[in-house]
Amino acid sequence: MNNLFFFMCLVSLIILTLKSKHFLLMLMSLEFLVIYIYFGLFILMIYMNYEYYFIMVFLTMSVCEGTLGLSILVSLIRSYGNDYFQTFNVLW
């Protein structure tokens, strides 16, 4: 089970670093990392025999994070026309 967690984290971080040209691919890799953390917390809560309230709060916050990322993506596409990082002017 530890190998699965390590593999999921490693794949997500590799995709995040290699596919940093498009904003959408970075958002998808971050969501995969959130799913990895959610799965790890779920297994930990089962193993420790705790209640699942924290997992529901974490799931709610991760959904809010995902919708915020998608709204930023839509705003960037409307203002710049694409989601390439090279076209964004951070100082302006």
Rank of each mutant, 00 (worst) to 15 (best):
G40M: 07
V63M: 12
M8F: 15
L70R: 00
L18Y: 09
Y38P: 01
Y53M: 02
F7N: 15
F23E: 00
L33A: 07
Y36H: 08
Y36N: 11
L68C: 07
L68K: 05
L13F: 03
C9Y: 14
Y50W: 11
I43V: 12
I72C: 07
F42S: 15
L25P: 01
I55G: 05
M56A: 10
T60H: 04
I15C: 09
L30D: 04
L73Y: 15
I14V: 13
T17W: 14
N49E: 13
I35Y: 07
L59E: 00
L59W: 01
G66P: 00
E31P: 00
L27M: 06
T17G: 10
T17V: 15
L30I: 10
I72Q: 09
E65N: 14
S20H: 13
L73D: 03
T67K: 01
L25V: 08
M8A: 15
L18D: 05
T60S: 09
L68D: 06
L41D: 07
S20W: 10
T60F: 11
L44P: 02
M61K: 06
L68R: 05
V11P: 00
V34W: 11
F7I: 15
I46M: 15
E31V: 02
T67P: 02
V11R: 01
F54N: 11
G66Q: 00
M26P: 03
C64F: 14
I14R: 07
M8V: 14
L70A: 05
N49L: 12
L44R: 12
V34L: 13
I43L: 11
Y52P: 00
S62G: 07
S62T: 04
L59C: 08
Y47E: 14
Y52Q: 04
L27V: 10
Y53D: 04
Y47C: 06
F58E: 01
L73C: 06
L44D: 07
L44H: 14
H22R: 11
L27Y: 08
E31D: 04
V63E: 04
M28G: 03
Y52V: 10
S20N: 15
T67E: 02
I55R: 06
L59R: 01
G69P: 03
